[in-house]
Design a protein around this nucleic acid. Structure first.
Length: 892
DNA sequence: TTATTGCATGGCT
DNA sequence: AAGCCATGCAATA
């Protein structure tokens, strides 16, 4: 059975279903999901009827009802045909025996993300079957971490941008209705399909989190049972609205799972994992994952935390610790997002592209013996970092994570810093407007020891079960030139853990994003072989070097009130920018991948003076590809198979569906199967992507006010390509809600296209912004052309002479080339391809043409103007003006 | 005079 | 419009 379907006498293929025998006409295109996956990697070809049955999950019911192997789901009792390949994706095994149908498994999965260790088929299906879940309107692109933890390892491994985006666009998470589901049921066994884990340490593989989970919940599954919880436990059970899961782990081969509450406004899970990591050279590096999906602040009372009144002693805290993390999590959801310890989507993508989540957990399992709960972080204000020595604490954070204090004098609080040194701060408050203002007093020595300044971020975490508070920090990158590189690292850089401490010494468990920096220290390797144990030590060998985007510190260190106000403003502006950038990344990613649905052209809507493509039908997500030009000048694009992750060379004008696989490689029959080898080695492909990556790095957009560097979305291979280069990676900053758009706003909307204030975008810039702008431009030009054709016969005749409106007609001042034969965007991209002989990140666009021609030089740096310019030949060269003009007309 | 403390103010979300 | 919080500032040491 090497081929999905045998060939019938009539030339057509016979349905793979042995009970069917129906002939599949030759002209029938292969169904993407028509059948199950064969061992060869191919998809069993079924006739329409069988294919439908398979897709509807009724295949075995239809054809195998009288065959042995049926069992009942342990949870719902539904019949499951075990042992049949056709049903393999529809159930999972339970450790405790028995099976669970996919639906029930999914529910469990929603609450126990470590079950991503389960069948990848399950996960795959899980991801792809989320249409049943509501998608929040208005925020189609959900939080960066949405679903990431629940992806199958292989999904992570092949996480390309589209995978991530697809998930974000396609589904949200189940909201576990009760936490008890976690304890029973058992961990799903590791599927035989998932070869990646065959090499995993036995202690990990064999370990079951069940015990831990039971332990966790037996110990006090909620704060309600905690002694300290009586202080202020008026919070409803968060599980009723919880959707997130926090992962905790022990080195003794177990994982703790803790659902984290998500506010009702938030649909994404809050997933936290913090893990010190010890590499082979003995250094220890923490890791963490956190959802950075900002939840809405709720108005419910804050849950009280674990510290009893007036107690800051670690030993005592231990006694109060049972089940606390859950309460913590509940609290966190009510904190302002800006205080969330976080990792950005981009970082996660980088991480996920390189190291599947499971690996991270495993690494965590192997090397940690503590559970780390990131609590919150705060960017230091000038006041915080000043000599007064008072660190203003976000009220909700203080009330949620620090001991309750009833007197303004507060109590001493012991916090361990990155070096293991204990600090004692006075945690107190001031009455303020019928409220309280919480501060940590006496932080100056600590701040100075950490060499922190305004703009840097301090982080607070907790080590369980000790309950030890740990304080880390993250330097604002702009200080990098001012400081010793050694000290510029985050507080979690822990090359020499204190001796005699059996526990992992937690340094910065929140603010640091180890993967980001570790990336620079990772040697390039095959991202597919993620289970290769030999590659683990490479993971975190070097210290973490925060790569925060440059921040204009001067704006944040005011000395006078006036300046202070400026400082305050600038901090907020900075947050805006940070958020903008984060949003921008997402937006760019989306723009890059979204395209009009088939047989439909986008409309244009103008929002606050900026136009957006509007699709009557849902836009299509396309697969991200990379364009290359070989030495012979031939243009290709490269795409990665969704299944086997191999890279295939395709014609340049090919438009790929989001989930594209080798079987759909009709352009190269020899490589139309996952079993066929890659034309180029991963290294070679990576090298090409590297070219692109470098190029896009050079073309990064910077926000004027703080010079935050923005990276385009990196996908797996791009990650691979830049690994080991030792280059600093940009890091997104904490974000907050998006502010109103105002003059001077540098948010994603207002900076589109890149304004003249910031770094100029070159004509050859292939950043997402530019590509999108070009694409919009082309779209609008085409629309304009169409309009003109309809209204003016004379114009129509001209159009007939030049079937495609040359950009030179619209922008004669921008130096179009007479040889231009296609839309400007295509030309622009092609020019770069031709001139650079390198891969160009191709914004998916079905109008792309393979013809390499000189592009019209669209000025990407013009200042957006909102006034309508009636003249399409405005000498401003402002594409935006043109677009705006066109858009405005279109909107009419 | 300087540092510290406690509270008030006002910008901002 | 309420509340947060960055910071000013007067009182005090």
């Amino acid at each position: 059975m090497s081929s999905p379907a045998s060939v019938s006498l009539s030339g057509g293929k016979i349905c793979f279903n042995s009970h069917c025998k129906e002939v599949i006409p030759d002209h029938t295109p292969p169904r993407k999901k028509g059948g199950w996956r064969l061992r060869s990697g191919e998809i069993a070809e079924l006739c329409d009827r069988c294919s439908c049955a398979f897709e509807q999950g009724s295949f075995c019911e239809t054809f195998h009802s009288d065959v042995a192997g049926w069992r009942n789901c342990e949870a719902c009792g539904k019949r499951v045909h075990c042992g049949c390949v056709a049903s393999a994706p529809t159930y999972v095994f339970l450790d405790v025996g028995g099976v669970e149908c996919i639906a029930c498994a999914r529910k469990s999965l929603a609450m126990a993300p470590n079950q991503m260790l389960s069948s990848p088929m399950l996960m795959h299906q899980h991801v792809s079957e989320r249409r049943d879940l509501p998608v929040k309107s208005g925020r189609p692109i959900t939080g960066p971490f949405s679903g990431q933890w629940r992806q199958a390892p292989h999904m992570w491994n092949m996480t390309s941008l589209q995978s991530d985006l697809q998930q974000r666009l396609s589904y949200e998470f189940d909201r576990p209705s009760n936490i008890e589901k976690l304890a029973p049921g058992g961990r799903h066994s590791i599927s035989a399909h998932e070869k990646k884990f065959e090499e995993l340490p036995e202690r990990i593989i064999s370990g079951s989190h069940n015990n831990i989970a039971r332990d966790r919940y037996a110990h006090g599954n909620t704060g309600e049972n905690d002694p300290d919880s009586t202080r202020k436990s008026v919070i409803p059970d968060p599980c009723s609205t919880s959707s997130g899961v926090k992962i905790e782990a022990k080195a003794n081969s177990s994982i703790k799972l803790q659902p984290l509450p998500i506010s009702k406004e938030d649909s994404s899970p809050l997933i936290g994992l913090a893990a010190p990591f010890s590499s082979t050279n003995g250094s220890r590096e923490p890791m963490k994952f956190l959802s950075n999906q900002p939840p809405q602040l709720t108005t419910s009372p804050l849950p009280k935390q674990f510290y009893p009144e007036g107690i800051a002693d670690t030993e005592l805290q231990i006694q109060m610790r049972n089940g606390r993390a859950r309460v913590d999590a509940r609290s966190r959801t009510q904190l302002l997002p800006r205080y969330w310890p976080r990792i950005t989507d981009q970082e996660l993508q980088q991480i996920s592209g390189e190291y599947p989540s499971t690996l991270l957990i495993i690494i965590y399992l192997v090397y940690t013996n503590s559970v780390i709960t990131p609590l919150f972080e705060k960017m230091l204000s000038a006041s915080d970092a000043g000599r007064i020595g008072r660190l203003v604490l976000p009220k909700k954070c203080a009330e949620a994570y620090f001991p309750t204090i009833s007197q303004p004098e507060g109590l001493p609080l012991k916090v361990q810093d990155a070096s293991g040194k204990d600090w004692v701060f006075q945690f107190r408050f001031w009455p303020n407007n019928n409220s309280r203002m919480y501060v940590l007093e006496g932080v100056t020595p600590c701040i100075q020891a950490m060499q922190l300044q305004a703009g840097d971020t301090v982080t607070f975490s907790r080590i369980d079960p000790e309950g030890k508070l740990v304080m880390g920090f993250r330097k604002a990158s702009s200080s990098s030139t001012e400081q010793d590189p050694q000290t510029h690292k985050s507080g979690s850089d822990f090359s020499t853990p204190p001796e005699g401490n059996d526990k992992i010494v937690v340094t910065d468990l929140i603010g640091n994003v180890p993967f980001r920096a570790s990336k620079a220290s990772i040697e390039p390797r095959d991202p597919i072989n993620v289970a290769d144990r030999s590659s683990w030590p490479k993971f975190t060998k070097a210290g973490f070097i925060p790569q925060d985007g440059p921040v204009t510190r001067s704006l944040q260190v005011p000395s006078k009130r006036k300046a202070s106000t400026l400082g305050s403003k600038s901090k907020r502006l900075r947050i805006e920018n940070e958020e903008s950038m984060e949003l921008k990344l997402t937006w760019e990613e989306a723009q890059e991948l979204l395209r009009p649905p088939p047989n439909s052209s986008p409309g244009i809507v103008v929002i606050e003076g900026h136009e957006f493509e509007e699709y009557e039908e849902a836009p299509v997500l396309g697969k991200r590809t990379y364009f290359t030009t070989n030495p012979a000048g031939e243009n290709y694009q490269w795409a990665q198979c969704e299944d086997c992750l191999k890279w295939r060379k395709l014609p340049i004008d090919t438009l790929l569906p989001f989930k594209w696989t080798c079987t759909e490689n009709v352009w190269d029959p020899e490589r139309s199967s996952c079993s066929s080898e890659q034309e180029l080695s991963l290294e070679q492909v990576a090298a090409m992507i590297s070219c692109k990556t470098d190029a896009s790095k050079r073309a990064k957009v910077k926000v004027e006010s703080n010079n935050i560097e923005v990276s385009d979305g990196l996908d797996t291979l791009a990650n691979l390509a830049i690994l080991g280069e030792g280059k600093n990676l940009p890091m997104s900053q904490p974000t907050t809600r998006h502010p109103r758009h105002r003059p001077g706003c540098t948010c994603i909307v207002c900076i589109q296209p890149p304004s003249g204030k910031g770094p100029k975008h070159k004509q050859t810039c292939t950043c997402n912004v530019c590509l999108t702008v070009k694409r919009r431009f082309r779209t609008l030009m085409l629309r304009r052309e169409k309009r003109q054709s309809e209204k003016e016969s004379e114009t129509a005749r001209k159009q007939q002479q030049k079937p495609m409106l040359s950009s030179s007609e619209v922008l004669p001042q921008v130096g179009s080339d007479p040889s231009s034969t296609g839309p400007g965007d295509d030309n622009a991209s092609q020019k770069e391809i031709a001139s650079n002989d390198a891969i160009v990140d191709a914004a998916p666009d079905h109008r792309r043409t393979p013809t390499a021609v000189k592009p019209p030089q669209i000025d990407l740096n013009i200042q957006p103007e909102r006034e309508e310019d009636p003249s399409p030949k405005s000498d401003t060269g402002s594409m935006m003006r043109l677009i705006g003009d066109s858009a405005t007309r279109t909107a009419r």
